[in-house]
């Protein structure tokens, strides 16, 4: 039992946190701007490298440097939206999707151009795990990721229900035409969508890099599970995306636990395929997700 918790449950929750943080942005962009943002994974990578650049100058705990990553991703997101996505907004959304494909490539090649394509680590060395109640061994990083995500979830919930901007965002996600005729400032809503999505992408990027290592394909490799999480939670439902992220993360990690007999249920080399299969079956059988998201 303690083996299950130590080696499967906590890593699964950590992966889930990373997916949850990334999926919030994808879900909100999909809900409000109505396109699948394929550059979101590479936006995450950009955040990671922003932190890495700051860490080269200031040798403190990289988690304290996350604001630098956030600044970079928020700037990049707003820039790209202004110059590349906005000119296409009146066309069918598929053109914006194609454009975001290109932007993903632009982000990735910029990262490789500036920082090279080797693996880099944010924190060198091995940190001893915390031991709780003599049986549970949890790595500090996993605990940090899970707690941070929980705090962000509470703050996000507060933002979406109690502030004016947050409520207008939900209104636009639910019914853009009605929100527009009610006189909501759509441009402001769009701006805040990018700011929040990009900032959370930087946090997700930081944890993803700490969990393994930083490399230019870091975010792209996480993109499809994050899409799966956003669809599972219901498009345009940020809290649903959080829940979806945890479910996808758990499903992916726990699929290789030896549930039946001594063999892993699904070979770990097919772990990433689990998220894709969940995503594809969701798209077919329940595209509105668990929490009744919007169907585009």
């Amino acid at each position: 039992m303690s083996e299950f918790i130590n080696f499967y449950l906590f890593p699964a929750l950590t992966i889930g946190s990373i997916y949850a943080l990334g999926a919030v942005g994808i879900s909100m962009i999909f809900g409000i701007l109505r396109f699948a943002h394929f550059a979101h994974g590479d936006l995450m990578t950009l955040g990671t490298y922003g932190i890495l650049a700051a860490a080269a100058l200031m040798p403190v705990n990289p988690l304290l440097l996350v604001p630098f990553g956030m600044a970079l991703t928020v700037f990049a997101a707003l820039f790209v939206d202004r110059f590349f996505y906005r000119p296409l907004r009146d066309l069918p959304t598929i053109y914006t999707v194609i454009s975001s494909f290109g932007i993903a490539l632009v982000f990735r090649s910029l990262i490789q151009l500036v920082w090279g394509s080797e693996n880099q680590v944010l924190v060198a060395g091995v940190r001893p795990p915390l031991i709780l109640f003599d049986t549970f061994r949890v790595s500090v990083l996993h605990l940090q990721a899970i707690v941070t995500t929980a705090v962000i979830a509470v703050l996000l919930h507060f933002f979406l229900t109690a502030t004016r901007t947050g409520r207008s965002m939900r209104a636009v996600a639910d019914d853009p035409e009605l929100a527009e005729v009610s006189g909501l400032d759509t441009a402001k809503v769009v701006r805040w969508t990018w700011i929040i999505g990009a900032a959370l992408a930087a946090v997700a990027g930081a944890f993803a890099a700490l969990n393994t290592s930083a490399h230019p394909n870091l975010g792209w490799n996480l993109l499809l599970p994050m899409f799966a999480a956003a669809i599972l939670g219901g498009i345009g439902k940020p809290m649903g995306a959080m829940a979806g992220g945890f479910i996808i993360g758990m499903a992916e990690e726990l699929s290789s636990y030896h549930w039946i007999g001594d063999e892993a249920l699904i070979s770990p080399s097919y772990k990433t395929a689990v998220a894709f299969v969940i995503m594809i079956s969701l798209l077919i059988f329940r595209p509105q997700g668990l929490f009744k998201g919007r169907l585009l």
């Binding site: 598929i94 669809i231 894709f276 594809i280 798209l283 077919i284």
Partner: peptide, 24 residues
């Protein structure tokens, strides 16, 4: 048979997912 009913954005995601599975 499975994916063609999906709308454009969703078809893009599903087809990337399938390409990834094939690569695995």
């Amino acid at each position: 048979r499975i994916c063609v009913r999906l709308k454009s954005d969703y078809l893009a995601m599903a087809s990337i997912g399938i390409a990834e599975i094939l690569r695995l």
